[in-house]
Each structure stands twice: as C-alpha cells, then as structure tokens.
C-alpha cells in the first residue's frame, strides 16, 4: 500500500512528478486467520469485439498468448496475463502495469482491420485479495452469488454485487478470492469486509 507508482511526466518547461496513491492507503492491513490486502498495481485493459468473428478471436489469442474465454464466468491465463470474460462481447485483460502500453499498441495494430475497442482502465479499478478459512462466509455478508464450491469453482470469475458495489470476483482456490473493484469504492468494500470479519470472529 502507500504510493504505488511515481511517474515523471513532461509538463512543458519543467518535469512534474505525479504520484499515484493507493485507494486503500489509510487502511490498516488486515492479518489473522483471514487476511485482506490490496495487490500491487495491476495493468487492466478492457477489450470489446465480436466473439463470433473467428479472426478477432485468433488475433487476440495470438497477442495475449492464451485463448480468449468465450464461455461465461471463465478466465484464461498465460504467464503474467489473465483474460477475464466480462460479457458476450467484452473481456478484461490483467497484465503487469509496465506492459500495458506495449500490449495496447500490439492489440491496436494487430486488430486494425477488425472492428474492436480497446481501453486502458488500469486507473479505474484496484484489486483486493481476501484469503483465509472463512472467505466464503465473509463474501456471503454482501454478495448474493451462489458461492457453494460445487457451483462457483476455483478458477471461476464473475461480475457480481458486494453491498452496493459492482465487483469482479475471481476464485483462485477454495480459500483465496481476488476482488476487483472501482477505485472510489475501495474504502467502502474494505470497511465492509473488516466489519464482516469482526462479526464472524465473535
């Protein structure tokens, strides 16, 4: 937490340093049986396109290194890249923050003749990681999704609701969930989960 990145930007006559501060900078890291942390800044790219266009699917797969998930609520991974299914014509690519610009350019140039839209949304969301024996019970405090391990299995991902916030849930294993949330909702989600932990511990 704290400062996630410092960039020197050429602001005309003199260089200006822009500091990007974590949205959870003033929240204490939660440790114990269940832990809550904010992951280091991840690069995020939103991609729209026609899933029925074979050329689109193939070109994107060639760039990211894994198949584009076309089945609902699934994700695919290749090295440091994760591609999440968001909708029938929408995907989210997670990559290293330093790789965003290059990946964007590669997608734009390789798809130049195919109808698509690609947007850098790295600053729009942050990702929290909730881990521990009670993760499912904690998520149930604010999420209406059926989280039974037979229904929502490891590696599944989905967009859903937590409290009043829209989130992207990604189940890494039975005791670890990544929760992607809009930057400005982070403190809300953080405090909600901490309250849920207090309620469970008692």
């Amino acid at each position: 937490m704290g400062d996630q990145q410092s960039d020197v930007v050429n602001g005309g006559e003199k260089d200006v340093t822009i500091k990007t501060t974590s949205p959870a900078y003033n929240r204490q890291r939660i440790e114990g049986d269940n832990t809550l942390i904010e992951l280091p800044w991840i690069g995020k790219i939103n991609l729209r396109g026609n899933a029925e266009n074979k050329r689109f699917i193939e070109k994107v797969a060639a760039v990211v290194g894994c198949a584009l998930p076309v089945e609902a609520n699934t994700q695919e991974q290749h090295k440091s890249i994760t591609v999440f299914w968001l909708g029938p014509d929408e995907w989210l690519i997670h990559c290293e923050i330093d790789a965003v610009a290059e990946l964007m350019e590669k997608i734009k140039s390789d798809l130049s003749s195919i109808h698509h839209a690609v947007t850098d949304v790295s600053d729009y969301y942050t990702v929290l990681q909730l881990q521990g024996p009670d993760v499912t019970a904690l998520l149930r405090k604010g999420c209406p999704l059926d989280l039974h391990p037979e229904v929502f299995k490891s590696s599944h991902c989905t967009q859903t609701r937590f409290g009043h916030a829209s989130v992207l849930l990604h189940k890494l294993d039975k005791s670890t969930f990544n929760i992607q949330i809009r930057w400005s909702y982070t403190e809300y989600l953080w405090d909600y989960l901490v309250s849920a932990m207090d309620a469970i511990d008692r």
Binding site: N73, P144, T160
Partner: peptide, 11 residues
C-alpha cells in the same frame, strides 16, 4: 441469458 441464474438485486 449470458451469465446464468442470479439474484434479483443484480438486475
């Protein structure tokens, strides 16, 4: 039709 069965509060 795309995501499957969900709670009303998501809609």
């Amino acid at each position: 039709p795309w995501c499957g069965k969900r709670d009303q509060t998501e809609f």
